[in-house]
Design a protein around this nucleic acid. Structure first.
Length: 959
DNA sequence: ACAGGTCTATTGTAAC
DNA sequence: GTTACAATAGACCTGT
């Protein structure tokens, strides 16, 4: 039998690390392996039925090891806990007895306080393990990098402290004697370890350079010494890379895959080359050089490795608050946590409650299969909660970084638990557990690239409610009273629902989101806690840095890349508020067109990056002789060597287009495999779509304006060239935007000519995207309505489709669209127009008569900043927000304000304060007008031309 | 002083 | 990341 999770090793390690004090305590009662493993983390083991579940009791000896509480609670009560879940039926029938029961001491004790403490402070160190690498941390007290691995054989997370002797360092062009001569002899620094002479390839200078590696014992010393060295006029490199990242890059680790760690070796266990893998890769990359094909084979093994399945637990806490609308401040944690719910991936759910005078159970049933416990002592409750959470390798929260974790941590301090017994680590911008990993879904779903490319902009607000509504089709439990005033049944129901939603957001659709995270970790080479908290530019940075290290390339400094930027021809006129020129949007016609085909360039920008060898070191590099000029902007792209960005982007693009898009739809594969491949291709899509954007963003460490500028310039050239060719071929292009062309009723063979031309001339793939049976153009850019051959309706950019358009307009507009969808041939136009006219007349009258509800009149607009930060002017939604704030409601950045337009002087009112009689119909007529006009314009008529409307308007105005 | 007009800037949302 | 649109705020001008 296998050693379980290296637990034996863990014991050894503990002995060596423990202080005398801790050893002594363990002497009291040795925690058995079983105690530790008995947690719910073992997915296979069936859970005991709730009635058999018995919590360990009592906690009277707690005081021996933990300091006295601040005296807020009477000792006799604070240290005792009631009989748990098994009794909750009794509470139901005799709620009046809750108090009596809570004071009843339990007859049995299974776990002493020492065990509780031990479990809280113990760290699962191992010397060897076979497990999935999930993250790397830096442990300050050890002064070492620590691998966090999930061991599937024990179902738990283990830690492995570095034994490879890796140390923090940075690079400089100064030799040790130069530093001495310049009076910055860093070797006297207390953290200094040694100088190493290293040779690296400089990607811009295109030659090997000899550098001094200043090795230190402490990552903080890097920052300190870097300042010294650079202020003496020397160049420094790679000094701003976080140490735990440096460790991953240097050891060439791939988070998210299975490793065997032991001794000083960290070896991945990727599946050996599958027979057909070589064949597939050779086929896809047959035109690439040998090294690229070899790289591709390694990538393939990473993508093909199945994702880990690990036990997850989601949790959420509810805190008492005297002011219903305000959450207590986690930095002071002044009020008690009254409830905490957990839901795990094996289907188990628990709620722990704090006993409060006068707050009782009601008749209603409790959620099925849920273990409920009431505590007299908040401290015991929180410690138990943390203990349970820490048994899982991965804890999930919604906003845990900014609320739940800091609150619990601070609250435990307030309750007299010393910091070292509360295994929560509050980092600079996030919070986690000492022994578990933590994902905050609020941060994860706030990553814009995911929002847009992975979730198709389905949710707008970053709240648990709106995200789960959009992705799971269900929301939070609706409350009629503030959390602090709920009876216990409702509190349990509400709290638990939040925990369950949180869990489900990660696990729905066969672990879609979790698997996506794993895939992104593997690609970016960053740990799970980094990936889930950083924007895509950091993901790409991880991948690029890792790749630089693999090639033994020096990672250039911002300044070095910046220099190439100014070396460029730079002819483009400076555009106001913009850094560079973007894409072309063709002027659309006004009218209705039948049989319009849409062609688009498959991943235009990434393809251009690949085809044109665009990378920070290939554009405007003076160390390259053989260059080719980018039209319009005049940047010169190197042809002598292959760039790093385009190689990576090109590889991901090819994998996606040629392999994984197909695999995700391959019916011969098992459902689970297909879903995985869909995740793989989605992750690649996120990457390649962002690959162009990051070069134009200062936040990206390899920021290169010439690259971004060249991409868009080439995009324009390609679109223009294709347009010209279309004219030659007598194709009628009606519209186009960035990478698409709308062609009116083309002969089929001519279309093929165009596709061939694009392939030949630009090496790009032009694909048929859609065929519209009919399409309406309003004459506005990015604004059309089409009906495809299959009868699907495609609406782009129209006012009626925008999220800030009142609901009734959307409803009425979609009725109009239904009428329109009958449109098949030109002869239908007249009849349909007549029908539309009727409908619009009705709508007009309905608005004037206000037949809609207040909610339907609501305009929903997001606050892009906190209300007080609007200093230039005060938009309507901000005015409405301020009215709400006067009532004590706090509104902040990211919140959506619902308001109606009113007749009073201010002109707006939040829906919460408005009545239907406040609504100004005249202002809504204007709104309706713009919405429908975008449809009517295609028919060649304007709003005023709709007969009757004008008459009615006058009539109503006159009266 | 102020109503009503023009013009520009700000803001939010969407397409790509 | 840029391009594009709608709605509106606020500055400025003009006529009374």
């Amino acid at each position: 039998m296998r050693v379980r999770g290296g637990q034996e090793a863990a014991q050894d390690k503990e002995t060596s690390l423990d202080s005398d004090e801790e050893r002594g305590r363990r002497g009291l009662r040795q925690t058995t392996l079983l105690d530790y493993m008995a947690g719910p983390a073992k997915p296979k083991k069936p859970e005991p039925p709730p009635t058999l579940h018995r919590e360990r009791e009592p906690e009277s000896k707690y005081q021996n090891t933990l300091p006295e509480t601040t005296g807020k609670e009477p000792a006799s009560m604070s240290l005792r806990r009631n009989q748990p879940s098994s009794k909750h039926e009794e509470y139901n029938s005799e709620s009046g007895d809750v108090r009596g029961l809570t004071l009843e001491p339990s007859p049995q004790s299974e776990l002493s306080d020492d065990d509780v403490i031990l479990e809280l402070v113990r760290e699962p160190w191992v010397e060897s393990v076979r497990g999935y690498l999930l993250d790397v941390r830096y442990d300050g007290s050890l002064g070492k990098a620590v691998l966090m691995l999930y061991d599937p054989s024990s179902g738990s997370l283990v830690k492995w402290a570095d034994r490879t002797g890796h140390k923090p360092y940075f690079l400089t062009d100064a030799r040790p004697e130069d530093l001495r001569a310049a009076g910055v002899d860093v070797s006297h620094d207390e953290s200094f370890l040694q100088y190493d002479l290293v040779e690296k390839f400089h990607p811009i200078d295109r030659k090997l350079v000899k550098l001094t590696k200043i090795v230190v014992s402490d990552p903080l010393a890097v920052r300190r010494l870097r300042e010294k060295v650079s202020s003496a006029g020397f160049s420094v490199w790679e000094a701003d890379i976080k140490y735990h990242h440096n460790y991953i890059f240097d050891r060439q680790l791939i988070p998210g895959i299975l490793y065997e760690v032991g001794g000083v070796r960290i070896v991945h266990t990727l599946p050996l080359e599958m027979d057909d893998a070589t064949r597939i890769v050779d086929e896809i990359f047959r035109e690439e050089p040998r090294e690229v094909r070899e790289r591709a084979r390694e990538w393939l093994r990473i993508f093909e490795a199945p994702p880990p399945k690990l036990p997850l637990i989601a949790f959420d806490i509810e805190v008492y608050s005297p002011i219903a609308t305000r959450l207590p401040d986690p930095s002071t944690a002044p009020y008690p946590v009254i409830s905490a719910a957990t839901a795990d991936s094996s289907g188990r759910s628990r709620v722990v409650l704090l006993y409060r005078d006068g707050v009782e159970f009601t008749e209603g049933a409790l959620p099925e299969g849920t273990e409920v416990e009431i505590y007299d002592s908040e401290r015991a409750m929180l410690l138990d909660l943390v203990r349970i959470l820490q048994r899982y390798p991965l804890v999930v929260s919604f906003n845990g970084d900014n609320f739940d974790l800091p609150y619990i941590a601070r609250r435990l301090e307030v309750l007299g638990v010393p910091r070292e017994f509360a295994p929560i680590e509050l980092k600079q911008d996030y919070a986690t557990f000492r022994r578990s990993l933590h994902i905050d879904l609020h941060k994860l779903f706030g990553i814009r690239a995911l929002q847009v490319y992975a979730f198709g902009n389905k949710y707008r607000e970053l709240s648990l409610e709106s995200i789960s509504r959009a992705l799971l089709g269900k929301g939070k439990v609706e409350l009629k009273a503030p959390v602090s005033e709920l009876n216990l049944n409702k509190l349990i129901e509400y709290n638990l629902q939040d925990a369950r939603l949180t869990l489900e957001l990660l696990t729905f659709s066969n672990n879609l989101v979790f698997n996506l995270i794993i895939m992104v970790m593997r690609t970016s080479k960053l740990g799970i806690e980094d990936i889930t908290r950083s924007q895509i530019s950091n993901w790409i940075r991880g991948l690029m840095y890792w790749e630089h290290r693999r090639r033994r390339w020096l990672i250039p400094s911002r300044g070095e890349i910046e220099k190439l930027s100014s070396a460029g021809a730079r002819v483009g006129a400076i555009i106001k508020d913009k850094k560079y020129r973007g894409a072309i949007v063709l002027d659309p016609p006004v009218g209705i067109f039948f049989r319009v085909l849409v062609l688009d360039f498959a991943s235009l920008y990434p393809s251009l990056i690949k085809q044109w060898n665009l990378s920070y070191e290939t554009v405007n590099n003076p160390n390259c002789r053989d260059t080719i000029e980018v039209p319009e902007v005049g940047h010169r792209v190197c042809r002598e060597f292959k760039g790093i960005s385009n190689e990576i982007v090109g590889m991901l693009r090819d994998f996606r287009v040629r392999l994984y898009k197909k695999k995700s739809k391959d019916k011969s594969l098992r459902e689970e495999e297909r879903l995985w491949y869909d995740v793989v291709q989605s992750a690649m899509k996120v990457y390649i779509n962002a690959s162009y954007g990051v070069f134009g963003s200062e936040k990206f460490s390899l920021y290169s304006l010439p690259v971004a500028e060249s991409v868009t310039a080439l995009g324009r050239a390609v679109l223009r060239g294709t347009l010209e060719k279309s004219r030659e071929l007598n194709l009628h292009i009606v519209y186009g935007d960035t990478d698409s062309l709308f062609i009116w009723d083309p002969p089929k063979d001519v279309l093929n000519d165009l596709v061939d031309y694009v392939e030949r001339t630009y090496g790009l793939e032009l694909e048929l995207d859609k065929v519209f049976r009919a399409i309406l153009f309003s004459g506005l850019k990015k604004n059309y309505l089409g009906i495809t051959e299959e009868g699907d309706i495609v609406i782009k950019g129209m006012v009626a489709k925008k999220s800030n358009t009142p609901e009734f307009i959307k409803d009425e507009f979609s009725k109009a669209v239904k009428i329109l969808s009958k449109l098949e041939k030109p002869e239908d136009v007249e009849a349909i127009l007549a029908e539309l006219r009727d409908h619009i007349n009705t709508v007009y009258n309905n608005v004037k008569k206000k037949v809609y509800t207040l909610d339907q009149f609501a305009i929903k607009v997001m606050l892009s900043k906190n209300p007080r930060e609007y200093d230039k002017n005060t938009p309507q939604h901000v005015k409405a927000a301020m009215l709400l704030q006067r009532l004590g409601l706090t509104l902040s950045r990211g919140d959506i304000v619902y308001y109606v337009k009113t007749r009073d002087k201010l002109g707006v009112k939040p829906v919460q304060l408005a009545r239907l009689s406040d609504v100004d119909p005249g202002k809504y007529v204007e709104h309706v007008k713009t919405a429908f006009e975008q449809m009517l314009m295609a028919f060649g008529i304007s709003w005023d031309d709709i007969s009757g409307v004008r008459k009615l308007d006058r009539l109503l105005f006159d009266s």
